[in-house]
Computed example of a mutant assay.
Amino acid sequence: MKKTKLLLGLGFLAAAGIILIAADHIDAPSSMGTTADIADFYGFEPSEGSDNTVFVVDLQTNVVPDLAYGSFDETVLTEINIDTDGDLVEDLVIQAIPREGRMYFFGPVAPSKTGLDSEVLVDSPLGSVEISGTTAIKSTTANGVTLFAGPRQDSFFFDFFQFNAVIGGMAPGGFKTSEEAVDTFEGKNNMSIVVEMPNSLLGTPTGQNALGLAVYKTWVTTNKKQ
Results as ranks from 00 to 15, higher is better:
Gly115Tyr: 10
Ser155Met: 06
Pro46Glu: 03
Asn62Cys: 08
Leu88Ile: 12
Glu186Cys: 06
His25Tyr: 15
Leu116Ser: 13
Ala39Tyr: 06
Leu67Met: 12
Pro198Glu: 04
Phe106Cys: 09
Glu180His: 01
Phe106Lys: 13
Val89Pro: 02
Gly107Arg: 13
Ile137Gly: 06
Thr78Phe: 14
Asn223Gly: 07
Ala181Lys: 06
Ala110Phe: 04
Thr34Ser: 15
Gly70Gln: 09
Thr206Val: 13
Gln226Val: 12
Pro172Asp: 04
Thr61Val: 11
Asp24Phe: 01
Gln208Gly: 01
Ser50Leu: 08
Ser71Met: 07
Glu100Trp: 01
Tyr216Arg: 07
Thr218Glu: 04
Asn62Ser: 13
Asp58Cys: 15
Thr204Gly: 01
Ala22Cys: 02
Asn223Thr: 09
Gly101Pro: 05
Ser47Pro: 04
Phe161Pro: 12
Gly9Asn: 10
Ser124Gln: 14
Met103Trp: 11
Pro205Ile: 02
Asp24Trp: 02
His25Gln: 05
Val195Thr: 10
Ile193Asn: 00
Thr53Asp: 05
Gln226Asn: 04
Leu6Thr: 13
Asp154Tyr: 00
Leu8Phe: 12
Ser192Lys: 10
Gly169Lys: 15
Ile137Asn: 11
Asp91Gln: 05
Val93Met: 10
Ala68Glu: 14
Gln95Ile: 12
Gly49Pro: 14
Thr75Gly: 11
Asn81Arg: 15
Asp73Leu: 02
Ala16Cys: 06
Ile167His: 00
Val182Thr: 10
Glu196Tyr: 00
Val93Ala: 14
Ser178Tyr: 07
Gly174Pro: 00
Ala171Trp: 01
Val57Ile: 13
Ser139Ala: 15
Val220Met: 07
Lys113Pro: 07
Glu130Trp: 11
Asn190Val: 07
Leu77Tyr: 08
Phe12His: 13
Asn143Pro: 00
Val215Phe: 00
Gln95Thr: 12
Met32His: 09
Tyr216Asp: 02
Phe175His: 00
Ser50Arg: 07
Leu211Lys: 13
Lys217Thr: 14
Gln60Thr: 12
Ser112Lys: 12
Asn164Tyr: 08
Ile137Arg: 09
Gly173His: 00
Ala214His: 03
Ile21Ser: 11
Thr140Pro: 06
Gly115Gln: 08
